[in-house]
Measured scan of single mutants.
Amino acid sequence: MQIFVKGLTGKTTTLEVEPSDTIENVKAKIQDKTGLPPDQQRLIFAGKQLEDGRTLSDYNIQKESTLHIVWR
């Protein structure tokens, strides 16, 4: 499925993911596209910070959802 990651600059990155992907895995995909290391990424969805060990489905993140990224 496709999801979007929007940064503070307003730039949006598209990712191809599975609902079973962990947040850690998603951060690795973001690094592949942007070069930003996972330890500098904070992902937010529906006002919650996403924890590395959880999956996208744990947070009810579905296709075409938009996550927000904040740099540490």
Rank of each mutant, 00 (worst) to 15 (best):
Q2W: 11
Q2Y: 13
I3M: 03
F4A: 03
K6F: 08
K6E: 08
L8V: 12
L8Y: 13
L8T: 09
T9Q: 12
G10W: 07
G10P: 06
K11M: 13
L15D: 00
E16G: 05
E16M: 12
V17F: 04
V17I: 04
V17N: 00
E18S: 14
E18F: 14
E18C: 09
P19H: 06
P19F: 07
S20V: 05
S20H: 12
S20C: 06
D21M: 11
T22V: 04
I23F: 02
I23W: 01
I23V: 09
E24G: 11
E24V: 06
E24P: 03
E24S: 12
N25R: 15
N25Y: 11
K27E: 01
K27G: 01
K27N: 02
K27A: 02
A28P: 01
A28S: 11
K29I: 06
K29R: 08
K29Q: 09
K29N: 04
I30W: 05
I30Y: 12
D32W: 12
D32R: 13
K33L: 14
T34I: 13
T34A: 04
T34Q: 04
T34P: 02
T34Y: 11
G35W: 03
G35M: 04
G35K: 05
G35I: 02
G35N: 05
L36Y: 11
L36W: 15
L36R: 07
L36D: 03
L36V: 13
L36A: 06
P38Q: 11
P38H: 10
D39W: 13
D39K: 11
D39V: 09
Q40K: 13
Q40P: 02
Q40A: 11
Q40E: 10
Q41G: 05
Q41L: 15
L43G: 00
I44A: 05
I44S: 09
I44D: 04
G47T: 04
K48L: 12
Q49H: 12
Q49P: 11
L50N: 00
E51F: 07
E51P: 02
E51C: 07
D52L: 05
D52Q: 05
G53R: 08
R54D: 05
R54N: 09
T55F: 05
T55P: 04
S57Q: 12
D58K: 02
Y59I: 02
Y59A: 02
Y59N: 02
Y59E: 02
Y59P: 00
N60I: 03
N60V: 04
I61Q: 01
I61N: 00
Q62H: 10
Q62T: 14
Q62F: 09
K63N: 15
K63L: 06
K63M: 10
E64Y: 14
E64D: 14
S65W: 03
S65Y: 08
T66E: 07
T66H: 15
L67G: 01
I69W: 05
I69Q: 04
I69E: 03
I69M: 11
I69D: 04
V70L: 12
V70E: 13
W71C: 09
W71I: 15
W71N: 09
W71F: 11
R72K: 13
R72I: 15
